[in-house]
Simulated assay, not measured.
Amino acid sequence: MAEYPQDVVQRFHGTPEQVDAGLVGEPPRTWASVVIEEYDRGRAQRFVALRTSIVEALGDLALAVEHVGSTAVPGLAAKPIIDIDLIVEDTAEEAAYLPALERLGYRLVLREPWWHGHRMLVSPGEDVNLHVWPPGAPEPVRHRLFRDWLRSHPHDRERYAAAKRRLARDTAHQPRDYSLAKNDVIDEIYARIFAA
């Protein structure tokens, strides 16, 4: 059994108030509704182009660029939004990386120093969430573990897809509750990951 550091095992469950406190400017319009679509293999291909543009713009500042989230799992229904984890040396040093990403059209929407220095940017079409983390942040580790588990465990992949569809319907009147509503099923899957 693999041993994971405590900060990886213990997930942070943010609140709507914390998201509001971290909001920079206008929230993305994609936060106003939740749409779950069948898997689209084109998103994996698009990630390759996005990764290339990010690495070209940042050079050595981009320590890692990973496709995470549901669009990174073949066969998994997902919101039509690509999630990317970008690791930079110091997320608080925004002047080092933000201007280059803004030239690519990304817009900073979240600044959450209390959550391992997390920053989130969205693409011009708001169909990419670019999450910026410092080295050693536990969340990108969890993202990769979750992605890889769902890639190789079809039962959990289908269970997660069914939960997402149900929760998208159940939270249609309050779409910002969708992410928080997924915590139960996500935590159950993480329990299996950490026990494996």
Rank of each mutant, 00 (worst) to 15 (best):
M1V: 15
A2W: 09
E3W: 07
P5W: 13
P5E: 07
Q6S: 15
D7N: 15
V8A: 14
V8E: 11
F12H: 12
T15M: 06
E17W: 03
Q18Y: 01
A21Y: 09
A21T: 03
A21C: 07
A21I: 05
G22C: 11
L23I: 01
L23K: 02
V24C: 06
E26C: 00
P28M: 02
V34M: 08
I36F: 02
E37Q: 14
E38I: 02
D40Y: 03
R41L: 02
R43M: 11
A44E: 13
A44M: 05
R46W: 14
V48G: 00
T52H: 14
G59C: 05
V65P: 02
H67W: 07
S70L: 13
S70Q: 07
T71E: 00
T71G: 05
P74D: 08
G75W: 08
L76F: 10
A78E: 00
K79E: 03
P80T: 06
P80E: 03
P80V: 08
I81S: 05
D83W: 01
L86S: 06
T91F: 08
E94Q: 15
P99S: 12
P99T: 11
L101M: 09
R103F: 09
G105P: 04
G105Q: 06
R107Q: 11
R107L: 02
L108W: 13
L110K: 08
W114Q: 14
L121Q: 05
G125S: 13
E126Q: 15
D127H: 11
V128P: 03
N129T: 02
N129M: 04
N129H: 15
H131P: 01
W133Y: 15
E139I: 10
V141H: 07
V141I: 08
R142C: 11
R142D: 07
R142L: 12
R144H: 05
D148W: 02
W149L: 05
W149D: 05
S152K: 10
P154K: 02
H155G: 04
H155S: 11
E158F: 01
E158K: 06
Y160H: 10
A161C: 10
A162P: 00
A168R: 01
A168N: 04
R169H: 04
D170R: 09
T171Q: 05
Q174K: 09
Q174C: 10
R176D: 12
R176Y: 13
D177G: 12
D177N: 14
Y178F: 15
L180H: 11
L180V: 03
K182Y: 03
V185D: 07
I186W: 12
D187T: 13
D187C: 06
I189G: 01
I189K: 01
A191N: 00
A191S: 14
R192S: 09
R192M: 03
R192Y: 03
A195N: 12
